[in-house]
């Protein structure tokens, strides 16, 4: 039941804008305002004065450093797997350990056999293996 007492209580609690009052009392409040415009306006004006005072309090704006610290701590996107072999390893559930063992085997094998063929092939494969490990680490 909306009467002047209830209207005044709601204004005291929720402020001078009926649209910010609880949804379930707004229709009755607007109806009361239509029926008793002077009393309603007086109650709302008093509450609105306080709303304006409250809005005068300064706002703390987020600084650039805080914003950056928060963004830096956010989840990182996973890097897409670049080669069919990397995608196969990931889909087969092969972990980084197996990939590392495979890569180490490749390098060791190439190093043994490349002694007579020169170091270039070994370096290339070593670089490929490191790259492979990076990709697999991201996906695991």
């Amino acid at each position: 039941m909306m009467n002047l007492d209830r209207f005044q209580t709601l204004a005291d609690a929720f402020g001078g804008s009926i649209t910010r009052w609880p949804v379930d009392v707004q229709d009755a409040a607007f109806a009361f305002m239509a029926a008793s415009p002077d009393a309603a306006a007086q109650a709302l004006a008093r509450a609105r004065d306080l709303d304006e005072d409250l809005d005068a309090a300064g706002r703390l704006s987020p600084g650039v450093a805080l914003r950056q610290r928060i963004i830096d701590a956010a989840p990182k996107a996973r890097r897409p797997l670049r080669t069919p072999f990397q995608r196969w390893l990931a889909s087969a559930g092969v972990g980084a350990g197996l990939a590392a063992a495979t890569a180490a085997g490749l390098i060791a094998g190439v190093n043994l056999s490349a002694a007579s063929a020169g170091g270039d092939a070994a370096l290339l494969l070593a670089a490929y293996s490191t790259d492979l490990l990076d990709g697999e680490g991201d996906a695991s």
């Binding site: 706002r59 704006s61 987020p62 805080l66 914003r67 928060i70 989840p75 990182k76 996107a77 996973r78």
Partner: peptide, 19 residues
Amino acid sequence: RGDPAAIQALVARKLPRML
């Protein structure tokens, strides 16, 4: 999913309110 644009947008939307 780590979408950088979404992260920026969420921080812009919520950080002032939380602060």
